[in-house]
Design a protein around this nucleic acid. Structure first.
Length: 567
RNA sequence: UGGGGUGUAGGCAAGUGGAAAGCCAUCCGCCUUUGGAGCGGACAUUCGGAGGUUCGAAUCCUCCCACCCCAGCCA
């Protein structure tokens, strides 16, 4: 019932255009999109937006979405990245079937098209150096000037281009340029480079080529070859569109429609492969899949579900304006998903020993605990209770501030699914004064958590039985940066890295039902948050959990506001 | 001082001449054996600004302002 609204047709300006095109029977009503990553890095949540849009829209309108690797620059691209990209897209829940394409598969055709333009007098070989080309290009406000090589004969251009191809010239010696207009107000039209000499092996083509087409000469024609009807790309390519149009027109080939939309920005992180790469290579994170990274592999490892990421992408919408989405929305989306699906479990992160003085020395009771109150079908499990327990250090205050409902000397609280207990004594370290143990009494009549006399307690604590608990490592991940927009200050963005983005806790205690928890399993640690068994470091001998996201925390807010002003 | 874009609440985002959707965040209640979840409520007299057209303007026109992108042989 709740999911009915999911099927409600979502709408954005791009889907509106597609609907309109279908209505007008443009392209015979076909819808072909494509997701065109360059295999030079790992996919991040910003790519997820594009993936959901391209695959999502294609599916909604009965079309197809190609996965096409835009691999025209062998300097940056690697097989490792194409594999990770495929894995991430599949994980996100999308399939491209046999529609797996590579721009490099079109190199032969692209070469022929280049020759065609040369023969039509629409492209020429330029011997200017890179620096000279830049100088000749002019500036934003001043027109450029024509290269002295601009008017070579077709014959000479063709000859030179062939010799570029056969490897006669060193890198950078010459380029092939489109002959358009050096005075165009659109800089992209000032005789853009189409081919450059790069004596570099290509991850798929090997040593076959030593000249490579530029993105500008590759992208539009690749879309064209694939019969893409709606070529959705980000906004910075808007003023490249006239150039793509120019190539397509001069080549007399099918002309896809390009539509631009704004890329995603997320608060408290960065979304640029270049910046993310810097974090990886600088050792600021453990790798592309560090759970703090906004990469899909990082989000996956931290416990995010593909469903939650898709839901996020739906909620943020698609538009053209620059925007920064609050990361709280992403966090909301995982909580929403995991709340319904994640089994609940008790885990104590900062253990404080509690002895129940009046509980029989050797007794252990197996108490019923509900696996997920949101989903009765998930059943119940047994949790052992005994004389010595651990509770969360934060759940006890010797001098409780107002609004602190948890345990304190003389105070009675409920141990979840167990008994009411009352704190009767506090044991401290003589030297440091640190509380090391609590003594409590329990009320046998409250077994299961209810008092027959109707007596209420103000809070319920999670706990773990000392003897049966399993020791585990828990990694508390937090936002990567301390500033909503780390790129906004004058300093290098790394200045704003959150020094507390990872806190590793090595002696946590988790309930025994977690024995055998498998990598990737997700749980809610009651009252704490959602956690996921680390997919790399966790073993049967030593469980390692990553915090995906904390639970919403009313008390934390109260405490914070008390500290901020009212206290 | 070239060209291309974009301005609706703290953050996203609908709206396309006829009473400013929705979501997140925030706040307030209710409920609760998770201070979770859930439920209910509050949150833009006004749409970057100023004029104009119109019975009527966020929507149309004019001017102005702000922000983003482009001077890679990156994509």
């Amino acid at each position: 019932m709740k999911n009915e609204k999911e099927s409600a047709t979502r709408s954005d300006f791009i889907r509106d255009i597609i609907k309109e095109d279908i209505k007008k029977n443009k392209n015979d009503g076909r819808v072909i999109t494509r997701f065109p990553p360059e295999p030079n890095g790992y996919l991040h949540i910003g790519h997820a937006k594009a993936i959901c849009l391209n695959f999502g829209a294609a599916k909604e309108f009965g079309g197809h979405c190609n996965l096409r690797f835009d691999d025209s620059n062998p300097i940056k691209e690697k097989e490792e990245y194409v594999e990770s990209i495929k894995k991430d897209i599949r994980w996100l829940g999308y399939n491209w079937g046999d529609r797996e394409c590579f721009a490099s598969d079109y190199f032969e055709q692209l070469y022929e098209w280049a020759v065609q333009l040369i023969k039509d007098g629409k492209a020429y070989i330029d011997d200017l150096s890179a620096e000279e080309i830049r100088e000749y290009r002019g500036t934003l406000t001043a027109p450029g000037k024509e290269s002295p090589y601009r008017n070579r004969s077709v014959k000479e251009n063709f000859d030179l281009f062939e010799r570029m191809k056969t490897g006669e010239f060193p890198d950078g010696a010459r380029v092939l340029r489109a002959k358009i207009d050096m005075a165009s107000p659109n800089i992209n039209m000032r005789d853009p480079v189409m081919y450059r000499i790069l004596h570099k092996p290509h991850h798929r083509q090997g040593d076959k080529w030593c000249i490579y087409p530029t993105y500008d000469f590759t992208h539009g024609q690749s879309d064209s070859k694939e019969g893409v009807t709606h070529s959705l790309c980000s906004i910075e390519f808007e003023d490249h569109r006239p150039l793509y149009d120019w190539f397509l027109e001069k080549l007399h080939v099918y002309h896809p429609q390009q539509i631009e939309f704004a890329r995603l920005n997320l608060s408290y992180t960065v979304l640029s492969k270049r910046k993310l790469m810097q974090l990886v290579s600088g050792g600021d994170v453990s790798g592309w899949d560090d759970p703090r990274m906004p990469t899909l592999s990082g989000l996956r490892r931290s416990g995010y579900t593909p469903e939650s990421i898709r839901a996020f992408c739906e909620r943020i919408g698609v538009a053209k304006r620059d925007s920064v989405v609050d990361i709280a929305l992403l966090e909301y989306c995982v909580r929403e998903d995991l709340n319904k699906r994640a089994p609940r479990v008790m885990a104590v992160l900062h253990p404080l020993r509690v002895v129940i003085d009046n509980y029989p020395e050797d007794q252990v009771e197996d108490l019923d605990a509900i696996n997920n109150p949101e989903d009765p079908d998930m059943g119940i499990r047994k949790v052992p209770f005994s004389r010595v327990l651990y509770i969360e250090r934060d759940d006890f205050r010797e001098e409780p501030p107002k609004k602190f409902y948890r345990l304190a000397p003389g105070r009675e609280v409920r141990m979840r699914y167990a008994y009411f207990i009352t704190c009767v004594d506090v044991v401290k370290d003589e030297k440091t004064g640190k509380v090391v143990e609590l003594h409590c009494t329990y009320d046998p009549a409250t077994r299961g958590g209810n008092a027959p006399d109707g007596r209420k307690v103000k809070s319920t604590l999670h706990w773990v039985s000392a003897a049966q608990a399993i020791e585990a490592e828990v990694r508390l991940y937090d936002r990567l940066f301390v500033k909503p927009n780390p790129l906004e200050g004058k300093e290098d963005f790394k200045t704003y890295l959150n020094p507390k983005s990872l806190e590793t806790l090595t002696s946590c205690r988790v309930e025994p039902s977690l024995k055998g928890a498998r990598q990737g399993n997700r749980y809610q640690f009651e009252r704490l948050g959602y956690f996921c068994v680390d997919s790399i470091d966790s073993t049967d001998e030593k469980l390692v959990f990553n915090r995906t996201v904390s639970l919403r925390d009313q008390w934390a807010k109260i405490e914070k506001s008390m500290k901020a002003g009212n206290g």
